[in-house]
Simulated scan of single mutants.
Amino acid sequence: MKRIFTVLAFTGILISCNSSDKTKTATQESATTETEADSSSNDINPQLKPIDTDEALIATALMAAPKESRAQSKVIGYNMAGEFVTLREGDNEFIILADDPKKVGFSASSYHKDLEPFMARGRALRTEGKTEQEIFAMREAEMKSGQLEITPGSTLHVYYGAKTAYDPETSKVDGAQLRYVVYMPFATSKSTGLPEVPVAPNHPWIMDPGTHKAHIMISPLPEDSE
C-alpha cells in the first residue's frame, strides 16, 4: 500500500512540475512576443509627418541645395492649392524647384539660376501639352540656333525618394537621397572619357551624349548602404 501511495505522490509531483514548466514557458514566450512587438513599433519614427503645407514643401525642397546655400535660395513650384508660384524669394545663385504634391513620390531639385531659361522653357512647353519627345526636339533646335543656352558645367541637384513623409526637425524626407547632374551640351563619351552607361554603383557616366541635353550623371550610394 505504501508503494502505491508513493507512486501516486511522485506522479502528482511530476504533473505539477510539468504544468509549472508549461506556464513558465508560455509566460516567457508571451514576454518575448511583447518585446518583439515593442521593438518593431520602435522602428517607426513618430516624428515623421506628411508634406501637407506650403511651409513643409519649402523645408523639404531646401534639402536639395547645398547646406550653406539654403538660407538665401529662391524656392518655386506648385503650392498645396495646385498653383505654380514663387514659394519663397531668394538672392543667391540657386533656384530650388519644390516637390509637386500631386505626383507620386518625392522629387525636389536645385540648380544654378543661369539654367532657369532652359528649365522655364520646358515647363512652358509641358503646360502647352507637348510630349517629352517634342520638348526635347524643340529645345535642341533652340539650343542650336542660340535661342537657349546652357553653360557647360551647370549643375542640377536632385533630392528624391519613393516616400512623402518627412521629419519636421531635420526636414529630411524619409528614405530620400541625392543625385547630381552636370550639364555638358553636345559632349560625348569620346570627348569626356566617360562611359555611356554606369559601369559600377556610384560611378559617373554620360547621358544623352551628343545632344543639347548631354550631362554627367552622378548617383551617390544611399546612406544606409555605405
Rank of each mutant, 00 (worst) to 15 (best):
I44R: 10
I13A: 09
G12T: 05
S145Q: 14
Y180E: 03
P201I: 01
P117L: 06
V173A: 05
G90E: 06
R88S: 12
G161N: 04
R70Y: 14
E134W: 00
R123A: 08
F186W: 15
V104Y: 12
I216K: 12
E140L: 07
K22Q: 14
V104F: 11
P66E: 08
G193N: 09
G12F: 03
S107E: 14
N18I: 06
L125W: 02
D208E: 15
L178V: 05
A9S: 11
V158E: 12
I15K: 04
D100Y: 06
N79H: 02
G210V: 10
A137M: 13
E68C: 04
E55L: 05
L148K: 00
D43Q: 06
Y183F: 14
S107R: 09
E55V: 03
L148I: 06
Y78T: 10
A137F: 10
S40Q: 04
F136Q: 01
T127R: 09
E93C: 03
A59Q: 15
A71V: 09
V181Y: 09
Y111A: 06
A31D: 08
N18M: 10
Y180G: 01
T6Y: 14
D224I: 12
T151V: 15
G146T: 13
S109L: 14
S40C: 00
S191H: 08
T27V: 07
H212C: 11
L14W: 05
T23D: 14
S30P: 00
A200W: 01
Y183K: 03
I44G: 00
L194Q: 10
Y159K: 04
E55Q: 13
K144S: 09
M63T: 08
L148P: 06
G105T: 11
A98N: 09
A214N: 07
L87Q: 05
L97K: 05
S189A: 13
T35Y: 02
T155R: 13
S154W: 03
M1W: 07
T211W: 11
T151C: 05
D99P: 04
A214L: 09
T155P: 02
P185F: 08
M138S: 09
L14C: 13
P198E: 03
M217P: 00
E36A: 12
E149C: 05
L8G: 15
M207R: 07
P195K: 05
Y78F: 13
L87W: 07
Q47H: 10
E196R: 08
A71M: 03
N42K: 08
F5E: 08
K130L: 02
S109H: 03
S219W: 13
K113Q: 06
T127E: 13
T164V: 10
L221I: 09
M1F: 11
I13G: 03
T155A: 07
G153L: 10
S69P: 03
P50N: 12
E116N: 01
T127M: 07
T25K: 15
A26I: 02
K190M: 08
C17T: 15
K49N: 13
E134P: 06
A176N: 10
Y159M: 08
S107T: 07
I44F: 08
L62Y: 01
K163A: 11
Y111G: 04
T127D: 10
V173C: 04
P201H: 02
S20V: 12
S225M: 15
H157T: 12
Q28P: 01
L115A: 04
G12Y: 01
